[in-house]
Structure formats: structure tokens, C-alpha cells
Amino acid sequence: MLKKNLTGAAAGVALGLMGSVAGARDLAFAVFVPAASPSVQSIYQPWVDWFNAEAAADDVEITLYAGGTLGRNPLAQAQMVADGVADLALTVPSYTPGVFPDFDMFELPGFANNTREGSLAALELHQEGLLHGYENYYVAAMYTSGAYMIHTREPIESVSNLNGTRLRVAGQIQTAVVEALGGVPQNMSAGEMAENIDRGLIDGAMTDASVARTFRVADVAPNHYDANLGVLVFTIVMNRGVYDSLPDRVKDLLAQSGQFIADRQIESYGPAIETNMQAWEADAAHTLVIPTDAERAEIAARVQPVIDQVAAAATPGLIEAYEAKLEDIRSR
């Protein structure tokens, strides 16, 4: 059912979708990021094009609604799918603290080193039934960002320099990590990072290298501390009732979609991060610090209480399974 409080353009689009949602033929895919973003251009639209070509014989297609057309609030995307406002939606588990505790471990420092490791680990652990929290949905895709690092106005040469540093974070795990490292976490949206750093309201931000470039953080925070501070999980979820109504061949396409999207993320996002890192290293206006083994050991020791907290809230044995999965991925 459509929520009665939808207004304006979103309501008009959603009302026009009522028949298609009921028939589960024209599937509305809600994405809260802009249509011009690299994720839409390199990942979501290519996936939609591939799916539509493959599902044409079954008279099923996906229509992509980017830029928050069906709802701009990133925290409300899963509920939009549950309510039938959209058939599929991009969601971020960490945006709703406490709802998906199994996913908190991906944001822990010292585990996944890059987009490939994080994306394959998340997807495969989900496929093996080890990640819980989305049982009321069909999960079409699961993948991650690159490893988070710290970008600041002033140089950060070691973890001790983080004491008292005001850093933008997103969510409770990043908040706990920054506090453990001596920083002062400041929760705000990605779009607010650069302006607040430029105005001196915060000293820097914790995010990966691609986001730092896309949201202009690197323009105002040219000092980069590559401390491998965890990755962020993204999921594309589908209304369970809509999924159940689809032909088996279309369900097979959805089963293939997770690997399709993870591969596209790895192929496009990973190299973008490497390009940014190389540019910063070659630019005299930037500093790029790689922590020593001793520094990494100190970071690990400081965040161990956060790891213990996450492990206690997650499915028993999940973090150990995550570590084993990462080792397996690195050996391939």
C-alpha cells in the first residue's frame, strides 16, 4: 500500500506505479544518490540495462528512479520497499543503528583492506546465510566502499595526532572508532563535509578516497592518513512479495545480480580510489601517510573494545567467519 503522506512529485510518481507494483512487471528501483553520480552511471544503470535485456522475454523490467525521486531520506529506503512505494531500493545498514548488528563488523578497522575484499566478503557471507537482518526482503546485491581513511586540514603523522581532532563520521560504529582513537566525532551528511571543514567547524572527515574526491573533501582537507578504518556496506533490497510473484527465470537473474553488481563495483570503484591515492602522493599540496606496523598495532589495540562490543551484538562466530573469508579472498 502507498503511504498517504507522500506529497508532490514523489506522490505523483508513486501513484503512477500502483498498477506496476501490483503486477510485479515494471519494477521501480529507488536510489537516493544523484543520477549523475559515478555509482549510478557505472553500476546501477548498467545493471538495470543488463537485467532488462535478459528479462525482456518474461515482460519484466526495472525502472531506475535516482536522486531520491521516490523518497530522499536514506534512512527510509528499506521501509519504502516494505510499504510498496518502491519495489527495490538502495540501502545502507549502518544508517539505522541497532537494526542490522551483523553488518557493524564491516566498519571495524583492520579487516577489509579494499573494495574487492569488502564486497566479495559481504556478498559471499550473505549467500552462505551467515548475515542476518534482511529476512523480510530479497537481497539482490551487497557490496562495500573502499577502506576508510582520515582526511584533515592539518597533517596527521601518527595516531597520537588525532587527539581532540573533530572528524565527520556516519553512524555509531564510526563514532565509537573515532572516540577510541582520541578524536571527537561529528555526525553529518556527506554533502556537509567539505563546507564544514572549509569553515573550520570540523578538522576533517573519515571516508574513503573516492568519496573524499567526489564530495570535495580532498580540496579542503589535503592531508590523508591511510589507516584502513573499515568499509561501508550497501545493499539493494527487494519487496519479498514482489519477488515471490516473479517467474523463476527472472528470479535466476536476480540471483546473478549480486555478483554482477559486486564485479562492477570492484572494476570501477577500486581503480578510482587508486587513481586518487596516486594523484595525492604526486601532488606537493597533499600529504599521504601510510601508518607503520607499530601504528597499526596501536590502532588495533585502541579499537579492540569496539570490536568486542560489535562481536557481542552480532551472530556468534560471525567475526571469525569474516576473518576466514577475507583470508580466502586474499589467496585467490
Rank of each mutant, 00 (worst) to 15 (best):
M1N: 06
A9W: 06
L15E: 08
V40K: 08
I43L: 13
P46R: 04
P46E: 03
D49Y: 02
N52E: 04
A56Q: 12
G67W: 13
G71W: 10
N73M: 14
M80L: 14
A82T: 07
V85T: 07
L90A: 08
T91L: 06
T91F: 11
P93K: 15
S94Q: 10
F106L: 12
S119D: 07
S119I: 04
A121P: 05
L125E: 04
Y134G: 09
E135K: 15
A141C: 00
S145H: 01
L162R: 12
N163C: 13
N187M: 13
M188I: 13
E192C: 03
M193G: 06
E195Q: 15
R199P: 06
D203T: 10
V211R: 05
R213V: 00
N223A: 01
H224V: 07
H224P: 02
G241K: 10
V250I: 08
D252M: 11
A255V: 02
Q256K: 15
P271Q: 08
Q278I: 08
T292D: 12
A294V: 00
E295F: 06
I299L: 00
A314C: 01
G317Y: 03
L318W: 05
E320H: 00
A321M: 07
K325P: 04
L326I: 03
I329K: 13
R332C: 05
